[in-house]
Design a protein around this nucleic acid. Structure first.
Lengths: 134, 134
DNA sequence: ATAGGTTCCGTACCATGGTACAGAGTCAAG
DNA sequence: CTTGACTCTGTACCATGGTACGGAACCTAT
């Protein structure tokens, strides 16, 4: 096992574990420009807590529905001066999220209806298609 | 222009238009077993309102987060007798939807925070990563 | 009867977000 | 000083959900 040398000197495997992703995913993000590839003093590259923070951000942002490409832009923006662009991206995404949340709630209702009707002890097939005919 | 002959005799193009998808998408769904491929009396296949209903169901179910594979199963179930299986799928999906809705709400809050902090007229970069550090 | 828009069928290609090697190098513990 | 775990680089492959295209057949209005 590779021994830890503090939070500022993680191997790629430790970084991956810390972000709950596979090593290959880290490399994939590096190729996409989402994480940078540190220079190496020895044969092995070392990562710090900032990398871990970025990695975790990526996963959060993904969960918020951002694409990797959008996340790449957000990461650039985080360092830059363009406040309006960041606000714009956030605003758009909030709208998309609101739409999705509403849609999911409608779907939830339809499924609830389905589960109820289907559980009502009747016989024959469940009216699956019908349960979505709003 | 191809003339309509009533709701029970749609061309693939009309079906596609009615379901708000492209013709190629219909064919794709046919290949995947989500829609069936009617026999043709003449050189051109004809579709009916039941096909349109299935097509619309597919889009609804997709919006509810079902994969095409799951949708295929739902469509089979709709005709069959296995009420418990359908209920099970619905139940699982409701749980997944609830989780997603909660996640999206959290993300929404983070983005709202970001937009606010970022819009507060300060100078320098927005604390994008920080806004997701819960 | 011919031109145009559709349809048919097969196959190829695309984006997104990874995942899986192979072969060589590195590193730490025993 | 070897062994075993881990890393590095490059390239290939995967699933999902489509989208595009070529060439032939078809169908309808003129």
């Amino acid at each position: 096992m590779v021994q830890s040398q503090g939070p500022e000197s993680l191997t790629i495997g430790q970084l991956a574990a810390g972000g709950n992703v596979g090593v290959e995913t880290i490399r994939f993000y590096q190729r996409k420009g989402l994480l940078d590839t540190p220079t190496r003093e020895s044969g092995i590259r070392r990562y710090g807590s900032e990398d871990l923070r970025r990695l975790r951000f990526i996963r959060q942002a993904q969960a918020a529905g951002f694409t990797l490409e959008e996340i790449r832009e957000l990461l650039e923006l985080d360092a830059g001066e363009d406040r309006s662009r960041a606000r714009e991206l956030a605003r758009r995404r909030i709208q998309a999220l609101d739409a999705k949340i509403a849609e999911f709630n409608r779907a939830r209702d339809a499924l609830q209806r389905l589960a109820t009707e289907c559980g009502a002890g009747g016989k024959g097939p469940c009216p699956i298609l019908a349960s979505f005919d709003v």
